[in-house]
Amino acid sequence: MIRFISLLLIVAMTACFREDEPVVLPPPGELQYAQVAMGSTYGRQYYFDLETRDTTGMPFSSWDLCFSSTPQDWQVWINGGNQAYVALTTFDHLSEVKDTTELKWLMDAPSWHRDSTAIGAWMTHNYCYVLDRGPAFAEKVRYYKFQIRALANSDYLLTYAALHDSAAASVTIERLTDRHYLYFSFDHNGSVPFIEPAVDDWDLLFTRYRHVFTGQQPPLPYVVTGVLINPSVAVAVDSILGFDLIDYAQAQQLTYVSQRNIIGYAWKYYDFSAQAFIVRSNLTYVIRDTKGIYWKLRFIDFYNENGEKGYPAFAFQRL
């Protein structure tokens, strides 16, 4: 009896808050390799997630307008990979827009900076826009006129018609809270060609986009094949330390930016003497993903085993 009572006393007196077990941090990840198949014509674009290696692909030309889905943002971009341009008219009814004369064609900044879109602050006026979808489209479907309105719930209302059509159509572009961008195509009587992966599910977009070579006179817009980053991802570029030496401590010393074309196309160049794309393997990109995890990445090839271009291959490792 005494023992039993003693046992109860000990149990009751010693029961206490459970202490945490120390967490053992994982060592740096394995060196991994991946290759995406954009194709020799660069026709496909791919979203790539460094953590899961998930890829999501679709034709890069499948969209015309890209709407910001981020709350409080309202920017709209055009598909530079299609060499699209947009112009602001002086008409506030679509039926008044009948041709492209005297239109001033504009394009977005390659950086996708919010303040540098060709469409600009559409909510401050009622004028119509005309989109030149690009030279790859037949004349009848190349030009579209449109207006954008903001709905009370902050969704977008897009009213559009082909340039020479009088009947306009409207479509509501609904914001998705877990995405950065919403895409729209004038094909198929207006459609959503695809839904990009959720914000946390992709880091890099291998695609065609328009770069402007400002060193040229006049500045030369040119479609390039490269990488745009998730706007929630930050990237630092290193050309000194080298891929093998960069670790977590050094990565924290670097300067990171979230400019979408920070990786861009310049990790390779065309060697005219060799008639081939050469990868700049001294460039290391340190990527801080949406979860705060650091990765180092470098490109190792642009060709597949058959010698076809458009197959960027890269090595990456979690720090």
Binding site: F17, V23, Y248, Y294
Partner: peptide, 14 residues
């Protein structure tokens, strides 16, 4: 009373 929060686990800190 101990109100323990959800852990934040990254490769670099917990």
């Amino acid at each position: 009373i101990r109100n323990k929060g959800l852990p934040v686990l990254t490769p670099y800190q917990a």
